[in-house]
Amino acid sequence: MSGLLSGGNTDELVPPGWVKNPSAWGERLPIVGLALVGLAIATYLSLFQYEVIDTVWEPFFGDGSRTVLTSRLSNVLPVKDAALGALGYLLDAVTGVIGGTKRWRTMPWIVIIFGIFVGPLGAVSVLLVVAQPVVYGSFCTLCLTSAVISLAMIPPAVDEVLASFQDLRRMRQSGGNWWRYFWGLDSTPEAAGADTSVRMGT
């Protein structure tokens, strides 16, 4: 029965039924690059919020950036919101580079953690953008830029998440230990006890 898969897809980099490998460096490094640009912008804005610098670059909206960045909403938490944004981008970059090009099947846990950082954090940054004009009547150019960066990172990140989820679903269908597989403790489905001859959808 193991012959069904010898030399077959369990060692293949591209997930079954996919065109490309979502964990390939060519797919991931652009996301990491965007995260680093976001990190630079957020760090710059934190320097302004912590009064290390006393002006902020705002080419379009006059006082907009200053109003938004020094507002009460920015000060709700013990850490200024730009600094939290910088931490978010740093986490995106770090979890984006951990793991090799097979990580969608050998390390699903890091892929899902990466997806959690990129997706919901991106959504939060959008909500902050929505709040700016409604609450303060002004826009902040660099805040808008970083929201666009956060959104742009979402599609390239979630395809890896789908690949991992599909593999975990196959594990469940095949009776294997999907929990061990999720944590990368067993890197092939057979090692985790899956019966890979079970047809999906049965």
Partner: peptide
């Protein structure tokens, strides 16, 4: 619709 373990790449 879930691809099999040994499904070929698309």
């Amino acid at each position: 619709d879930l691809p099999e373990w040994n499904a070929p790449r698309a």
